[in-house]
Amino acid sequence: MIKESSVLHSEALAILKWKASLQSQNHSVLLSWNTSNNPNTKTSPCGWFGIHCNHADSVIKINLTGYGVKGTLHLFPFLSLPNLAELDLSTNELYGIIPPKISQLSKLTYLDLSFNQFSGQIPPEISHLVHLQTLHLAGNQLNGSIPREIGQLKFLTDLALCSNKLNGCIPASLGKLSRLVSLLLYNNSLSGLIPPELGNLRNLVEVYLDTNRLTGPIPSTFGNLKNLRVLHMFNNSLSGPIPSELGNMESLSEINLYHNNLSGLIPTSFGDLRLLTLAHLYESQLSGPIPEEIGNLNSLIDLECNTPNPRPSPESNTRC
């Protein structure tokens, strides 16, 4: 049986090994990462800046967000931190790939590597983090496709892969993430159809698929998203009519569909979106009048479209 002091010693030494690989190892926030501050806690990292421990003095959280840390994760002690549950290294100057060894953080529930300079592909091994609830990789230079294995993260509530260089299709397997609340995939080069399976995600509150290269129809299954408040799909190449089923999204407050190839009429069912405050439908191929039913939307303050013969609500800010 490994003694507790040995565990602490190994965690501290492993963290110091990663620190030594950083170009910013002498950064003021990392000065506490040493073994000479307190003779009684030489082998424990629990008093170090940004590091939190459990009652057994084992590391459970590392938070270095926004502190100018520069380097890679090649020597990050994935295997040496068996109790790490939260890792936030966002808004730094980290680069290189996200190592597949990240899957060794078996208790991780929160991972935020956003707004760094990571490149390469998202490792499919990230799906081994079976307890993960938050996965934020936004604002990097990640490329390749979204691994379909992410659909195995059954506890995931927040997925942010936006502002990268991702391509390929949105995996249908994301429709298995039944607890997902926030889906942020905007500002990539994703192509192909929007999977109808996303309509299975009944807990979704916000969906941002804008500024990609998506084609084909808006899935009618989105009408199942009763809790959805924000739907952004602008700046794509979506085609076909706006599904009348979108009128079933009773919590919707914002819908942005502009700059697509959508055609046909604005559905009269939009008149059922009682909480709608903003609808941007311009720069598309929509035709016909604005439905009179939209005049019943007392919360609507911003309606922008380009259909001929508009009949806007007199209380709306309308550009048609």
Rank of each mutant, 00 (worst) to 15 (best):
F118V: 06
I146D: 02
N116Q: 07
I126N: 05
N143C: 10
P124W: 03
N116P: 02
L137R: 08
S127H: 00
F118S: 02
I126P: 01
T134K: 03
G120C: 08
I146E: 03
L132N: 10
S114G: 11
L132E: 05
L129V: 10
L142H: 06
F118A: 03
Q117G: 14
S127C: 11
H131R: 15
E125I: 10
I126W: 00
L129I: 13
S145T: 14
L132K: 02
S114W: 01
L129G: 05
P124H: 05
N116R: 03
G144R: 08
Q117Y: 13
L142N: 07
Q117L: 15
Q133E: 15
H136W: 03
N116S: 10
H128F: 08
I122V: 13
L137P: 11
S127E: 10
P124I: 14
L129H: 04
I122F: 04
S145H: 08
I146Y: 01
P147F: 04
F118I: 06
E125V: 06
L129N: 03
S114R: 01
Q133F: 00
N143A: 05
P123M: 12
S114L: 02
I126M: 15
S114K: 01
H136A: 07
Q141T: 11
Q141E: 09
Q133N: 08
L132Q: 11
N143Q: 07
L132I: 12
G120Y: 02
P124E: 13
N140M: 12
F118T: 05
F115C: 13
F115A: 14
I146L: 04
N116D: 03
H136G: 06
H128R: 15
L135V: 11
L137M: 06
L142A: 09
S114F: 01
H128G: 00
H131A: 12
L132S: 09
S127K: 10
Q141F: 04
Q133P: 00
F115L: 15
S127P: 06
F115N: 15
I146M: 08
P123C: 13
H131C: 09
T134H: 04
L132G: 08
G139D: 03
T134V: 15
L137W: 06
N143I: 05
H131I: 09
E125F: 01
Q133C: 02
V130L: 11
G120F: 01
Q121P: 00
E125G: 07
P147A: 05
N143R: 02
N140L: 14
G144M: 07
L129E: 07
I122S: 05
S119C: 14
I126V: 15
N140S: 14
G139A: 05
L142Y: 00
H128K: 15
H128S: 13
